[in-house]
């Protein structure tokens, strides 16, 4: 047991080291959310209240944090493909630790780096004047971590089925973008036509964004308890799926 924990720890540490080394990745990953906040957030700030929505910067900030968590996490998970392509995956696969530990180390490591990115963009949002408050920081960090573990697991599950990075564009355009737009990160979906609002209810990020919105602004369309429960269930399902699919990798 001790051995497995040591394995999980060192794989977690590897993700952090790699994250720390790739400064360009960090800056790159914060570029898009920054412009969303700075341009979209500021630009629509005066239009949004006219539609009766209140302060737009305040509305969008939790959504953008959710986006950063999702992008960062799925990307960390999908990186398993590159580990496979560049051989490092073999080193872990033949080590005397279980595949479960490999998946967990990867998931916690990727999630930690995603939360770090989320915190960075939260600070940027504050600097840009978003009116967000930190009620319960521990609960906030826990919730962010949960969202991230959920999406890293989804990324690992997808990566386990792909041979190389060619499929990544597909994932990015047909999975990540719809999940983002349907999550209510940029506009409230409660008043959207029913196909959109229904689809939105099936999107795990919807619950992530609403939960974050509640924790950061005190108001949301969906009760926080529901958000937490749904994210918890999705996390369990995606971890299970990741472990199942990762187990099938032959080499």
């Amino acid at each position: 047991m001790n051995r497995e924990i040591e394995g999980i720890y060192i794989l977690w540490k590897r993700e952090l080291l790699r994250f720390y080394r790739s400064k360009s990745r960090i800056i790159g990953s914060l570029g898009m959310p920054f412009f969303f906040l700075a341009i979209l957030g500021t630009g629509l700030n005066n239009v949004f209240p006219m539609a009766g929505g209140g302060n737009y910067m305040q509305f969008i900030a939790p959504g953008i944090i959710g986006m950063v968590l999702m992008f960062g996490s799925i990307f960390s998970g999908v990186i398993v493909i590159m580990d496979r392509q560049f051989g490092f995956l073999k080193e872990t696969l033949v080590a005397p630790i279980s595949r479960l530990s490999i998946v967990l180390g990867k998931a916690f490591g990727g999630a930690t780096t995603a939360v770090l990115q989320g915190v960075l963009i939260m600070l940027i949002a504050l600097l840009l004047g978003a009116q967000i408050q930190f009620g319960n920081i521990l609960l906030l960090l826990f919730f962010m971590l949960l969202i991230s573990v959920m999406f890293v697991s989804l990324g690992i599950a997808i990566a386990s089925m792909l041979e190389d990075m060619h499929g990544f564009q597909l994932i990015s355009n047909f999975l990540i973008m719809p999940l983002f737009f349907l999550s209510g990160a940029l506009f409230p979906l409660s008043s959207a036509p029913w196909p959109l609002s229904t689809a939105s209810m099936l999107d795990p990020l919807t619950y992530g964004v609403n939960g974050l919105r509640f924790l950061l602004t005190g108001q949301s369309d969906i009760a926080f308890g529901t958000c937490l429960a749904v994210i918890g269930i999705f996390t369990a399902v995606f971890i299970g799926l990741a472990i199942f699919l990762f187990n099938r990798i032959e080499d």
């Binding site: 001790n2 051995r3 040591e6 394995g7 720890y9 060192i10 794989l11 540490k13 590897r14 080291l17 790699r18 080394r21 790739s22 560049f86 051989g87 490092f88 995956l89 073999k90 080193e91 872990t92 033949v94 080590a95 005397p96 630790i97």
Partner: peptide, 26 residues
């Protein structure tokens, strides 16, 4: 095992690669 194809983590230093292995093998 030394595989036919390289299996190091290029982003890490030599020391980090060795430490990672030591931890994986307890």
């Amino acid at each position: 095992i030394v595989f036919q194809d390289p299996s190091l983590d290029d982003e890490l230093t030599a020391m980090e690669n060795l430490e990672l292995h030591a931890a994986l093998y307890n």
